[in-house]
């Protein structure tokens, strides 16, 4: 077995719709090392969130299921693991912070209780020990007067504070992997920065690997070690973050990176127009046709792009790109 913390192999996730099963994530493979931060980027609807859910066995079923592939956590296969085993893994080995802090906490229990119950479930702590641990976690995630705040209900906290509570819940058992699914999308920009600082701090303290799902390239550049770009349910590029920002290879990645607004004003005082990638991500149902899924929106597409799907192609120092330009790159 390789020493990888997490290894996803040829993952396919399909959703049943109108009598047929439609894959929304296809042939996805990636690895995660101890203490590493991996960014998964892509537009809405490209399969990022469902991939994240699949890692802890929470793909909504029905209608969805993992139809192919394996997920190896420290060498242990999780796709075929039973619910009992997954319950042990969730929150303890792999935990998750969601996109919607406003609705992700249960409105009828105190935040202290919601943290403490996680510790009780996994460590079998007593009521008082678990409560003390909850207060400790609240202070760790930077909530002032944590012993008082622990008695608060979610509605008494702001969005940023609630996300801190979610992080406290996710980290209370010191997991090996923390999955953060667009953790700051619903928050103010200033609060976003605070939350990311918190992630970085806690990662140092706990030593967890982080999978950060986002569509914010700026965040990826700051936070991650390695980036995986998804498009229409497939991995189309992967590599170290510096290469990703400086030298994106796939036309889609290039587009994503160009979408970052630049603050620097050109001399003529006229801000450059924002770049956009024309069109939208195709629906999974439309992907039965041959060729690269991105071809219809790609400015560099040529004949082969519309007839054959490009395979992932190694491009040196841990990079891989799925694009015909890499192998027959003369038509651009």
């Amino acid at each position: 077995m390789s020493g990888k913390l997490l290894s996803v192999r040829n993952l396919e996730i399909a959703f049943r719709s109108g009598g047929e099963e439609i894959p929304v994530v296809r042939d996805l493979s990636f690895d995660l090392d101890h203490g590493e931060t991996l960014g998964i980027v892509g537009e809405s609807g490209c399969g990022k969130s469902v991939t994240a859910l699949s890692l802890i066995g929470l793909v909504p079923n029905p209608p969805g299921r993992i139809s192919k592939g394996e997920i190896l956590f420290e060498g242990e296969e999780l796709v075929k693991a039973g619910e009992r085993r997954l319950t042990q893994v969730r929150g303890n080995d792999i935990s998750m912070v969601f996109q919607e802090p406003m609705t992700s906490l249960n409105p009828v229990y105190t935040i202290g209780e919601q943290i403490a119950e996680t510790a009780r479930a996994h460590f079998g702590l007593s009521q008082s020990k678990a409560w003390a641990r909850a207060v400790e976690m609240l202070s760790l995630v930077g909530i002032p007067s944590p012993d008082k705040r622990a008695h608060d209900y979610p509605h008494q906290l702001s969005g940023g504070m609630r996300q801190r509570v979610m992080i406290a819940i996710a980290l209370v058992c010191e997991p090996k992997i923390l999955i953060a699914d667009e953790p700051t999308t619903a928050l103010d920009v200033t609060v976003q920065a605070q939350i990311f600082d918190l992630f970085r701090d806690l990662q140092k303290k706990i030593g967890a690997a982080i999978i950060l799902i986002t569509h914010d390239i700026g965040v990826v550049a700051q936070m991650t070690d390695r980036v995986l770009v998804m498009y229409a349910g497939r991995k189309i590029e992967e590599g170290p973050v510096a290469d990703f920002v400086r030298d994106p290879r796939h036309p889609y990645t290039r587009g994503l990176v160009s979408c970052i607004p630049r603050l620097a004003m050109p001399p003529d005082d006229e801000p450059a127009p924002l770049f956009e990638i024309p069109g939208v991500v195709p629906a999974p149902r439309e992907l039965n046709r041959p060729g690269c899924a991105f071809a219809p929106r790609c400015a560099s597409a040529f004949g082969k792009c519309r007839s054959q799907d490009p395979a992932l192609h190694a491009a040196g120092d841990g990079r891989a790109v799925a694009c015909w330009l890499e192998t027959e790159g003369n038509a651009a």
């Binding site: 319950t87 893994v89 969730r90 935990s95 969601f98 249960n106 229990y109 119950e117 479930a121 819940i169």
Partner: peptide
């Protein structure tokens, strides 16, 4: 709801997810 998903993601046993949350 999202908070039931959270409860499951925390690794609570099914009994607690249903009857408590």
């Amino acid at each position: 709801s999202d908070y039931v998903r959270t409860a499951r993601a925390k690794g609570l046993p099914r009994r607690l997810v249903i009857y408590k949350h």
